[in-house]
Design a protein around this nucleic acid. Sequence first.
DNA 1: CAACGATGCTAAATGCTTTTATCACCGTCT
DNA 2: AGACGGTGATAAAAGCATTTAGCATCGTTG
Lengths: 347, 347
Amino acid sequence: MVAKRTTLADVARAAGLSPTSASQILNGKPNTRFSDDTRKRVREAASTLNYRPNVGARALRTDRSLTIGFVSDVVATTRFASGLIRGAVEAAQEVGHVVLVVESGGDPAREGEAVAAVLDRQVDGIVFATMQARKIKAPVVPEGTRVVLLNAISAETSRAVLPDEEAGGRSAVDLLAQAGHRDGIALIGRNVLSEKFPTRSATIARRMQGITSRLDEFGISLAAEKASDEWEPDDGYRLTKELLAESGDIRALICMNDRLSFGAYRACLERGLTVGRDISIVSFDDDEIASYLRPSLSTIALPYQAMGRRAISLLLGDETEPGEYLVPMPAIERESILDLRTNSGWV
Amino acid sequence: MVAKRTTLADVARAAGLSPTSASQILNGKPNTRFSDDTRKRVREAASTLNYRPNVGARALRTDRSLTIGFVSDVVATTRFASGLIRGAVEAAQEVGHVVLVVESGGDPAREGEAVAAVLDRQVDGIVFATMQARKIKAPVVPEGTRVVLLNAISAETSRAVLPDEEAGGRSAVDLLAQAGHRDGIALIGRNVLSEKFPTRSATIARRMQGITSRLDEFGISLAAEKASDEWEPDDGYRLTKELLAESGDIRALICMNDRLSFGAYRACLERGLTVGRDISIVSFDDDEIASYLRPSLSTIALPYQAMGRRAISLLLGDETEPGEYLVPMPAIERESILDLRTNSGWV
DNA sequence: CAACGATGCTAAATGCTTTTATCACCGTCT
DNA sequence: AGACGGTGATAAAAGCATTTAGCATCGTTG
């Protein structure tokens, strides 16, 4: 025989009261008058019986389910962007909420289905996340539904959480400049397509913008630039290899992401160049591999977890201003940058 | 003015019927008698009004919420094991369910809270996942709650989904044997602690067992063995470096995971050994880095996604036999193994 | 023609909680 | 004595869907 869950009625009975009273007391309803003794009795009954309200029943009445829908396109559960979910789950739990995770596979039909599925469960709000920060058509939801875009932007007015890529781009340059780099700086992975089309990436253009404007401020001009629309390790290898063959005195590389850097390490090595001593590398993302490489890779992190948290605080908080909410990209200083002034590089 | 959701009553009204009838028709209740015309009218009304049942209200009556609780210890949302969630979410959605993701941080108190939180939402069952396949004290849940352990085992009788590590261990050896390796095989990362204590790892001993028994069957004895309780890249580097310095003719490495392999690559390189030509490496996990390495790493994959799927099919299906449900570990053949018979290695 | 069995449908209860409106009682004031 | 205000509580409805038990109506059968 399965023990049934304690209900509010059980508590009321145990305390010799009506469910109404029990409800009002447990919820701390203002403007009610109960004797201290009564209040105490109810609370004690609730605690001994281990009462927990049925969230579904409550939601039926109050329209608040303490539940948030997290709907992502392809792969927010992918290792790349799983920090988004992680941050959201953590932040939600801290304020007594719970997260319903749904994936649409990027397919608009399934997206509609996903949205409906969470709405059916009376969620208090929906976070729409994409893995590649992209411009999306915000899914249609009933008027009045709270929505936050995570790692995505849309044409419709709404709130969107994004990494502060422009500042991140500037930070990357700062890391190099701080270490005394002024000449012989090359850029690996300039991405013309993505810079043009926000449906591919909402952020790459800004990263680029941050880099170039900061370089300008320092009066630095790039010694070389290698373009690529793909950013896999092999691309980094190929581009860096070409670069080192063509250009004379390259002292530092700005790689557009860590996977490119991974390939760049190999190309440098083959050429007899030790990263962190003969050549500096700064990069973006703080991917898993960044800490595995030797020397470990200095990189501007994509703050996925913080972004996930921010999306929740935005969804549940009272900042209702539509627009972009930027999350800083921390500079992770490791060992891949040679300090030209002290000349203390990697050993 | 916010448009209210369509309710069953709305549908009934539109079809000129009672909610009772509408419910029975839409749910295809057997042993009811309605005219074809009536059925049609209800279905049409439901579809034009875009009716979707309120899952909470329904759960109140039926105790089925089409929702599954996924509670994990520290980090099932971590990139390492995020495949577990991904598989679960996918499989759940395919059968019309949705997944509630909660984390306990490994703290027993928070674990209780996490379980309660999903129970409050009347989930149809709970998946308990851990990142490191470990032996755990299965959390207490009310009798009658369906539970599946994912990547974990416990003393209590219940169902547990695990990777088939023993077969995986055998596969690793097979990959080497197939390529003609018989001598000069070394093992990197033997883990004495974890083999002894299932609270640290439920699976490492089995992986080891698979490796040794298969080696035995081939009559192969290990040329060397390096132990370590940590399996990070630096450990792989250090162990391999030592190994190569000490032992004479090492032709193949079995690394206990891909991060060790990563370090091993570096050690080989430094020693002037080209992986896939001068020395073979086989490994475990199929981590992100396995495909980035050059030559790419042949490895026995941890089938996280398939395991997540399996947990759901177990939770919702009717295999109620307690015990372990093993998921095969696919051998991912890449380029890190030299075929001694054709001598066609990596170029 | 009365009884009966199909046929087609519905009222009301149920699940659990919150909310609104109201009630009984007591003491005090005029 | 009657009105009044305060105190401490509750009945009933509402929120949405499902389930149980039963009600009309109609054609058939003996």
